[in-house]
Design a protein around this nucleic acid. Structure first.
Lengths: 328, 328
DNA sequence: CTGAAAGCGCTTACAG
DNA sequence: CTGAAAGCGCTTACAG
């Protein structure tokens, strides 16, 4: 079942079938109709390999994310697939493990397959990776952060702004010694840290000892550990803002074990508003981040670029939302 | 940079280069050496699209899983990629949302791309899907369960056995009214349910009112709800065995809210031993399931099949492990 | 708006 | 063990 069969059935040349099916204009509407009908009747489906070889472009979209074990990226990936699949694109997921060199290696591998598009996480990468993307000529959209560079397409939200907003919320609640606990220490975590720092500085309450960093991956256990350390070393701290919800949830459990009253003695806030926050004791205050929307809008922008179009804007800021629960 | 360039540099014909690079025997060792050196020097990499078109087989492996939001499958997928990538295969992840029809649709789409191999979750699917797999001739390994059919390749563990083992553990702890709470109600959940039922029946303690089913997806919130229902309607229940850890974790939080002592008044057990169980209050007893090992071993079996080999056994049982913590 | 020719970069038989 | 020929199923220029 090939183009020729459809051409035969429709009484046109194969190339006309090719054009009609791809929706190229410059084909008479009635011919398009005839071809479509024939293709449908024969159950014809174009061969992706032949198409890729001839056009030097596949229908694959490579999606590079740091981790799948962070629910954040799962939500984003699912939203991406929901958009890309109906449009006829296959998603290839590459996991970088927050490692710029692994990302570079992954990208090299994926580029060999001539992907139709690229979806990458964040803006920070090795110069070589940046060059690979630029030289490949493959459309690329950056997710999770917003770029000011008009040559870079991005969909995200202001990580620092979101963290600053949460910090101000804690200040409004009367907290004065607000610690920030960070894990992983990837670019976005550090942006959140800077947002927190800016808000505290503005309030005249910034103190470097309030900054707790740990490069290990975010987890309940690490959140518990960080909370225990903060409670032991800085008893005056009256709020802890964690860069991710799993840390905050772990802290809530640790507080219970240590019999430290939340939020009476210390307020606890998280980030991302992952599932389960409403089940915590007390329910966890967090920042809802629009990861699914980022996936959808990022895929839409990429779709536009892959079709040769130009998106209305090179960057889209999808914002965030404070979700205040009983923990603060 | 094509085969021809390498052929030229090595002073042989293109087809010899093709054969040498693919490791086909019937090429003189010294030629293989010469070709390899030339390819390396020129930085030649075969074009996957051309290869797929000519050989009618790609280097893609389609992996069909129910959900990415279940950490279980994330662990499995990561292990699969870790095995398949170095072997030169790309992983295409398809999410079925526990829907047999969606799985069928996904499979149809993936089969158009002539995948080199197929990795699917479980043994239960529509007859059409089964036929699609068989007729495609694409090597396929079934993950998570073990098949008795010698025509079906599988890597998993005894879901019913694992549930029965946990149930016996609860019986040994002196529990007599052991409820089973199930969500999602997919094939594996129902196998666990049957394992629990068998163990209770054997002990002469089976009672249908102890069975709690809810078709909604597993979550902390649903676990809390199920626990509240059980506590309200069946106060005599002295243990609840949840088909998944997130349910059990939600139950633990609900028990705290209701001030029901765990394990004094009621024991709580989960399944899979997802991350965070050790942080719960009290730490959660569970069954550790070898999902990463299943991913690795499944990928290995598929690799063997894709290379035309025959795996030592058509099915591999990787077992499970009881992880007893303070909640039981 | 439509088509004949050439070619994308490999591999599959078929010879020798 | 090696190679010349044909072809995988499309799309890209190039004409008209």
């Amino acid at each position: 079942m090939t183009l020729d069969d459809v051409a035969h059935a429709a009484g046109v040349s194969p190339i006309t079938v090719s054009r009609a099916l791809r929706g190229e204009r410059a084909v008479a509407p009635e011919l398009v109709e005839r071809v479509r009908a024939a293709a449908l009747k024969l159950g014809y489906v174009p061969d992706p390999a032949a198409r890729a070889l001839a056009s030097r472009r596949s229908t694959h979209v490579a999606v590079l994310i740091p981790m799948l074990s962070n629910a954040l990226f799962v939500d984003m990936v699912e939203a991406i697939q929901r958009r890309l699949r109906p449009a006829g694109y296959q998603t290839l997921i590459g996991i970088t493990h927050y490692d710029a060199n692994e990302e570079e290696q992954l990208l090299r591998e994926h580029l060999l397959h001539r992907p139709a598009g690229l979806l990458v996480t964040g803006l920070e990468r090795t110069p070589a990776t940046r060059a690979l993307i630029a030289n490949s000529g493959v459309p690329c959209v950056h997710l999770m952060e917003t770029s000011t560079d008009p040559g870079v397409h991005s969909v995200g939200f202001g990580q620092a702004d979101a963290a600053a907003a949460m910090t101000r919320h804690l200040l409004e609640r009367g907290r004065r010694r607000i610690a920030f606990a960070a894990a992983q220490l990837d670019a976005r975590t550090l942006q959140r840290l800077s947002g927190w720092r800016a808000a505290l500085t503005q309030a005249g309450l910034y103190d470097p000892v309030l900054e707790w960093r740990n490069p290990a991956p975010s987890s309940l256990a690490l959140g518990a550990l960080l909370f225990e350390q903060i409670a032991a070393h800085r008893p005056a701290v009256d709020a802890v803002f964690f860069c991710n919800d799993d840390l905050a949830q772990g802290a809530l459990l640790a507080a219970m074990r240590l019999r430290i009253a939340v939020p009476r003695k210390v307020a606890i806030a998280g980030f991302n508003d992952l599932t389960g926050n409403d089940q915590m004791l007390p329910p966890l205050t967090s920042v809802r981040t629009p990861r699914a929307e980022i996936g959808s809008a990022g895929a839409d922008m990429l779709l536009t670029l892959m079709q040769g179009g130009r998106p209305p804007s090179h960057t889209v800021d999808l914002g965030f939302e404070l979700v205040v629960r009983a923990s603060t």
